[in-house]
Structure formats: structure tokens, C-alpha cells
Design a protein around this nucleic acid. Structure first.
Lengths: 136, 136
DNA sequence: TATGGGGCTTCCCATCATGGGAAGGTCAAG
DNA sequence: CTTGACCTTCCCATGATGGGAAGCCCCATA
């Protein structure tokens, strides 16, 4: 199949498929006489794997490691789990950071009248901000 | 003061101060005879405001809007609150998305032995993934 | 006064993952 | 043979930031 069909079947854009190939994440497929990329079902399988990893927030480099583990039938599941757990921690740390921002902002917004008056504790807080020294 | 001191006082790198100036987020400061940027205390104030907004996850474009509101003494606090609330929603949506990824992955990892054996439901799930069609 | 080191200037490049689009070749259907 | 959809490669853009080179400037010290 051509790249368009591989894209449709895998959920990875043609643009990205070419890019993944260029950075060596996936193998270059064979080519037709006219230099069209020709994919097999197995390639679609790989692309779906990549898509799933990306959807779960793994970077392309992490995905590369996962692919290697996937292809290595003899690897210990501990290796996979270790990578996954590390990623889970990253994800949760990022989520917590975003949540902390939201909470701070929500706190400030709670004290903002939100009417026609100009006074606003949100902007006041921003204006009073000091870098890495607390509110001294 | 020179850019180095403004940077130290505001917590914004010199690199970023120049960048913010280049995109019109902050006003170009006056220059010394040798073309050095010369900042006043007020400029540091503005830089701290930007820093605070960035720390709370506002994009530079959102920060630009906040700066405009800050400088507009007559604005209604409702305008600020509206912008803030929208941002809070974005932050929480992103946090929820990250948390969902972590939960999915944690669920998969819970069923992974994590020992010397090669079987791993994490990779199995990835390999079985299908794009936007459920698990058919 | 000469020198050295640190700060400043501009300019270009890299990141990460992705999309847009141009210029041109190819294929299948009419 | 034309038309239109597809493919190719190549370059550019995003958002926010950092790295670093080449060259000028300023101050302190010898």
C-alpha cells in the first residue's frame, strides 16, 4: 500500500510517517518503480504502536526505546515496566504542576470581583511578584 | 541598569528580555552611547509581571493581553477574570489529559509482572492499538 | 597606558513534534 | 490525452527557550 493508506490505517499522518523514517524511528519501506513508498501490514502495525505510545505521552526517543523492547522478544518485562513507571511519574509531575498553577490562579480569581470595577487581585499579585525571593 | 542586572532582578534571562522586546511584548528601553540597553526600575517591574504570568502558564500572547489590561487602569476586573478563568480551564484540561494518560499506563503496568519474563501487557496493548475505531 | 576578563551587541542554529505549501513526477479513470 | 488525486523532496513556521560565535565596550589592575 502507499503512504496514504498506511496513514489512514495507522492514524499517523503521511507527513509524520516520512519524518519518523527520516529520524530512523521506523525502517525505510521498499519503493515502487516511481519511488513511491510501499508499506506492508506489519509496517502499519508498527505505526499504530508508535501512535499509541505518542498518545500516552511518550516522547519520540522514549517511543524508540519502547519499539526496541517490543522487537526484542527476550527482554525482561521489568525493563518495560521500569520505563513505564518513570514515564508515569513524569506525567503525574506535570499534571501536578499544571494543577498547582490552576489552583493558584483560582485562588486569585476567587477574590476578583469580576465586575465593572478596575481593582483586581490577579493583576495586583502579578505586579507584586518578585523572583525567587518570596514576597520580601 | 544594564540588561544583566535587569535579568537578575526580574528573574528573566537576558536572552528572553531581548526576545520579548523583539516581539513587541515589552517596550524597547533607551540605549547608552555604546548601544547598551538601559533599564529603569519600572522595566524590572514589568519583567517580573511577565515572569509571574509565564510561571502561571500563560502563553506570551495571553501575557501580552494581561499586560495591556494591567496598563489600562480603567479596565473592568471582569475582563481580567474572564481571561483568567479561561486559562484555568485550559490548565485543568491539560492536567486531566496527563492524568488520564498516567492512569491508563498505571493500569497497564499493574498487570505487568516486572520480572525476568518477557510477557508484558504494556507492549501488548501498544501492539494491539487501533486508530480511532476501538478494539475491533 | 596596556591588558585581561567579563558584559554587551547582533546573528544564526537547535530544540520538539507537527503542519503548510510549493514545484514537480505518477497513476488511474474517463 | 486530460484531469485530478496522489506521491516525491525541500523549505518554512510554530512556541519559548538556550547555545554559541564574532566583535565591541568598559573597568580594574599592573
Amino acid at each position: 500500500m502507499n503512504i496514504g493508506e498506511a496513514s489512514a490505517r495507522s492514524g499517523v499522518s503521511a507527513k509524520m510517517i516520512r519524518y519518523y523514517e527520516s529520524i530512523g524511528l521506523i525502517e525505510p519501506p521498499s519503493r515502487s518503480a516511481a519511488q513511491y513508498r510501499v508499506y506492508a501490514d506489519d509496517d502499519v502495525h508498527t505505526l499504530r504502536f508508535v501512535r499509541r505510545a505518542r498518545d500516552l505521552g511518550f516522547s519520540l526517543e522514549e517511543t524508540r526505546a519502547l519499539l526496541a523492547l517490543w522487537r526484542d522478544r527476550g527482554r525482561a518485562s521489568a525493563d518495560v515496566k521500569k520505563l513505564a513507571m518513570a514515564h508515569i511519574n513524569e506525567l503525574e509531575a506535570k499534571a501536578a504542576a499544571l494543577k498547582a498553577m490552576a489552583d493558584t490562579l483560582r485562588h486569585l480569581a476567587a477574590h476578583c470581583h469580576g465586575d465593572h470595577r478596575p481593582d483586581c487581585p490577579i493583576l495586583s499579585d502579578f505586579a507584586a511578584a518578585t523572583p525567587a525571593r518570596g514576597k520580601g
